[in-house]
Design a protein around this nucleic acid. Structure first.
Length: 306
DNA sequence: TGCAGTGTTGCTTC
DNA sequence: CGAAGCAACACTGC
């Protein structure tokens, strides 16, 4: 389940692997993965475009495409058609992006894809393949078909979609004051509040449990009951945990893999997530599992008091 | 063997 | 309007 650190890892890897490449072809046996547009239209829009930038916002990846035939030195004409658009990709729980070698058969023009990371059982649910210049492909695998790709026509539309998300934990606006305002209005369980992407962008189930333990806050505490000190602890823990998780390239306790099919290693040092019945590293007591907002929640009842 | 569990987001319902 | 619950989906594990 890719959360902020996993999507950030994918973003960095894609930047070094696919920026500057041209999309030569798109293939899919599951065209509904591309939302809100007929697949043939989608194909017409992206084939021939060049990958200019890769960004992340919340758990979304944004790939900026520009017409590969439009030269940067060329003077703009009066009625120049829109040449820049964006792929907005959300991987949901089991979505993966994989970059591998691929080349076109000389004799019949069909694409041959080398196996590589695609032999991983986690990557065998290929839904869409983008064939790229330089004998590469970007493949989109997703077991459960929740993940999607949207084509965003221009920067205004993109901005409108992305403005619904709360601040990124590494943004300037992610301050004690902001969090006091956000939590003060809600009497819901704090865990639900911090996983709401409209309030804070990027925290999912794994890092919510890790952050709440690090800041010693019980997941069922009413958000508006937190003291200023607890909110500051939460803020500091969020930055600390997410930074460490990015360094370790994410958590692969379940299906997550990076674009080369490799696992992240944050799962090895996680303290709470999926560690119920083990001993708490803080006090030695037993880690409990409960449900909060329908999600499995792991915490230490002794270190994180109601 | 069937069914609960898994997990993000957005839609529906109250 | 906020909050809660469920659907989307497919596979695993008990």
């Amino acid at each position: 389940m890719p959360e902020l650190p996993e999507v950030e890892t994918i973003k960095s890897d894609l930047r070094s692997l696919i920026i500057g490449k041209e999309i030569l072809d798109v293939k899919s046996e599951y065209p509904d993965i591309v939302k809100d547009i007929d697949f043939d239209d989608f194909k017409r829009e992206v084939v021939g475009k060049k990958i200019l930038k890769v960004r992340r916002r919340a758990k979304n990846l944004i790939i900026e495409l520009v017409d590969s035939r439009s030269s940067l030195v060329e003077k703009p004409t009066n009625h120049k058609p829109q040449t820049t658009n964006y792929l907005l990709i959300h991987l949901k729980m089991t979505g993966h992006l994989i970059v591998t070698d691929a080349s076109r058969e000389v004799k019949d023009g069909s694409w041959v894809t080398k196996v590589g990371p695609l032999s991983d059982p986690q990557n065998q649910y290929i839904r869409i393949q983008f064939m790229l210049s330089g004998d590469k492909q970007l493949a989109f695998s997703d077991l459960r078909k929740f993940a999607y790709i949207k084509l965003i026509a221009n920067s205004e539309q993109l901005r409108a979609i992305l403005s619904d998300y709360g601040p990124e934990p590494f943004d300037k606006e992610f301050t004690l004051e902001y969090l006091k305002e956000l939590f003060g209005k809600k009497k819901t369980a704090i865990k639900k509040v911090i996983m709401d992407q409209k309030g804070i962008a990027g925290i999912g189930n794994i890092y919510a449990d890790e952050i709440l333990f690090d800041s010693r806050i019980h997941p069922l505490r009413a958000a508006n009951s937190l003291s200023d000190k607890e909110i500051e602890n939460f803020r500091a823990s969020t930055c600390k945990i997410l930074k460490k998780a990015i360094e370790l390239r994410g958590t692969s306790t379940s299906d997550y893999r990076d674009v080369k099919g490799e696992k992240g290693s944050y799962g090895d040092i996680r303290l709470m997530y999926k560690r119920d019945k083990e001993n708490c590293p803080g006090c030695g007591g037993e880690i409990k599992k409960i449900k909060v907002g329908g999600r499995g929640t792991h915490f230490c009842p002794n270190c994180q008091r109601q």
